[in-house]
C-alpha cells in the first residue's frame, strides 16, 4: 500500500534473479554491455591525459620519461584496447543521437541520416583541429 507521502511501506515485489552473465547469451546484449564498458576506457584515457599534462608541467625531462613509459608494452596494449572501446563509443553514440533527440527545422523532423552525417563531420573537424594544434 502507498500512503499519502508517496513512499511504499510494505510492498513485496516479485523480483526474479537475473544471472550476472545474462548479456553473454545474445550478440546484441553483448554489444550493449561492451558499449557500456567503454566508460572504463574513457576514464583511463582522461587519467592518462592528466598524467601527460602533469609531465609537461614538470619539465622537458619528465615529458621524455612520460613518452618512454607510454611506449612500454603494457601501456601500448592498454591504449590499443582503449582505442577499440573509444571507437565503439563514438559509433554507437552517433547512431543513438537521432533516437534520443528529435531535431526539427522549420517544423519538420531532420532525418537521422543528416544528424549522423553531421556528427561525423564534427568528428573530422575536431580531429583536424587537434592534429593542427599539436603538430604545427
Amino acid at each position: 500500500m502507498i500512503p499519502s507521502s508517496g513512499m511504499p511501506t510494505d510492498l513485496r515485489l516479485y523480483r526474479p534473479r537475473v544471472s550476472t552473465w545474462w548479456w553473454t547469451r545474445k550478440r546484441s546484449y553483448f554489444v550493449f554491455v561492451m558499449r557500456e564498458l567503454s566508460s572504463i576506457f574513457v576514464a583511463w584515457f582522461v587519467v592518462y591525459l592528466v598524467l601527460f599534462v602533469y609531465a609537461v608541467g614538470q619539465g622537458e625531462a619528465a615529458y621524455r620519461r612520460f613518452l618512454d613509459w607510454a611506449a612500454s608494452p603494457w601501456v601500448t596494449v592498454l591504449n590499443v584496447v582503449a582505442l577499440v572501446f573509444v571507437l565503439l563509443h563514438t559509433v554507437t553514440w552517433f547512431n543513438l543521437t537521432p533516437q534520443a533527440m528529435a531535431v526539427r527545422v522549420a517544423g519538420r523532423r531532420v532525418p537521422s541520416f543528416h544528424i549522423i552525417a553531421g556528427q561525423y563531420t564534427g568528428l573530422v573537424v575536431v580531429s583536424a583541429f587537434v592534429l593542427w594544434l599539436v603538430t604545427r
Binding site: L67, A70, V75, L83, H89, V126
Partner: peptide
C-alpha cells in the same frame, strides 16, 4: 558523451599511440 565521441579517437591515436 558527445565530447568523448568527437575528441577521444584522435587524442588516443596521437597521444596514446602515435607519439610514444
Amino acid at each position: 558523451g558527445v565530447l568523448a565521441a568527437v575528441f577521444l579517437p584522435i587524442l588516443v591515436i596521437l597521444f596514446g599511440l602515435a607519439f610514444p
